[in-house]
Design a protein around this nucleic acid. Structure first.
Lengths: 234, 234
DNA sequence: GCTCCAATCTGAACAGTGTTGAGATGTGAG
DNA sequence: CTCACATCTCAACACTGTTCAGATTGGAGC
């Protein structure tokens, strides 16, 4: 596995690859920078010309995977089975893609989902969160999600899906039947959307058209975390 | 800080305390066993008479906190503001307690919520998950949650609440107004419950009383993870 | 009271870690 | 062909988790 040329060519990418498979083999912390370097056939200190620290390596990997996940979600929305025009079907496809990924690649998912550096901003495109909000907009435009319930709705849906994904990736819950994951994911999305719709219709029944409760919620200023992109990474 | 007696008396507890404050100061991995030992005024190897490894220390701490959280949730259900007879109010109080804790003590929450050893089983009493299911049962008994929707409902609610808590603890979302957290939590719980109720009523409208979809969901075998309790830890 | 065992803790050591800095080795622009 | 610069190596640093032989102690049984 020793390379012949002194210069590696793409050491950065190779280190990210090695780190990714190491995460898969032994989790986020079950490996060392030295080991990743050794796998690539390079001295430990070589890595420091591409990443400021081990943490930065992990963060860069996290961002790489996150961007890939964004692509995957978007793709699976576009190619939702059945009618991809139905915005609700699209959202279910998104949820399924998200959760399935977390379950199929749990070690990497654990790394990425607890966001050491996965705050929505960075140069990550498309960020999974953006894909979700776009789908909710589409849902609203199609009339499937009432206007009054739209504000902050991405947060409710995100929490539910994220919770599901994290619970599965962490192994806190487990399904015997792999198909059950799909069903539960679908149920979570449907339940959440139904709940959101009903909340809005309740509000519409009130005198002012929107209840005081909904009104206050609308004023909630949901600020997504700003994080520095790794200086040498990404 | 050096103790006078050779035997510490309660080194185990003292190490757990030190670990807890270290987690709070520098996160799950930002400290060493040696440092925790030093804080307690004891040699590093002393810790190994109480915990098989550093990991076991962390796991034991996780379980201690988890049990404490269970107590907290149960307490906050019992003493729900307003009418503690209203099962929906109780569940909202539970959600509030859960999420608020994650936000107020994020470092410890991060440690505990990703469950290295927090699978519902162990000797943890009361386990937060059990408190949740008990509340859902109460909700069903009161008629606020239709029978057909009860099965697996704890999973939907848990996912939503857990997702919210994890997103906040990980700093993936942030609210400017601290009160907004309360509102969003309430919204998440309400939305989920409404969604579950509506799902059931939809099903009731069908010929067989339960749709094929609900029928399949009912057969989902939700298995909670079984994990070994740490051999030397509690 | 004393004895003696088992629990508890210490000290020194091991291999392995992240990280640094000085120097070797190539590469591509001029 | 040269030479500056990016890339990589080597050796070293302080520190980590962990082990184990031996010192220290509290308490049970006499």
């Amino acid at each position: 596995m020793a390379r012949e040329r002194y210069h590696h060519g793409d050491l950065r990418g190779a280190l990210l690859d090695a780190a990714e498979t190491l995460v898969r083999e032994r989790g986020t912390d079950g490996w060392s920078l030295r080991e990743a370097s050794a796998r690539v056939g390079v001295s430990p200190s070589a890595a420091y010309h591409h990443f400021a620290s081990r943490d930065m390596l992990v963060r860069a990997l996290s961002e790489r995977v996150l961007a890939w996940l964004g692509e995957r979600l978007r793709h699976d929305c576009e190619h939702a089975p059945g009618q991809e025009d139905d915005p609700q079907r699209r959202l279910i496809a998104l949820g399924r893609s998200y959760v399935t990924w977390a379950l199929d690649d749990p070690a990497v998912a654990r790394l990425v989902l607890r966001g050491g550096a996965t705050g929505p901003d960075s140069a990550i495109t498309p960020h999974p969160h953006d894909v979700l909000t776009a789908e909710l907009d589409r849902l609203t435009a199609a009339g499937a999600l009432p206007e009054p319930a739209r504000e902050g709705a991405e947060f409710v849906v995100w929490a539910a899906l994220h919770g599901l994904a994290v619970l599965l990736a962490d192994g806190l819950v487990r399904f015997d039947d792999p198909h059950a994951v799909t069903l539960q994911t679908e149920r979570v999305v449907r339940t959440t959307l139904n709940g959101l719709a009903q909340e809005a219709s309740h509000a519409a029944g009130r005198p002012a058209g929107r209840s005081a409760h909904t009104e206050r919620l609308a004023r909630v200023d949901l600020t997504l975390t700003q994080r520095q992109p790794p200086s040498m990474g990404a």
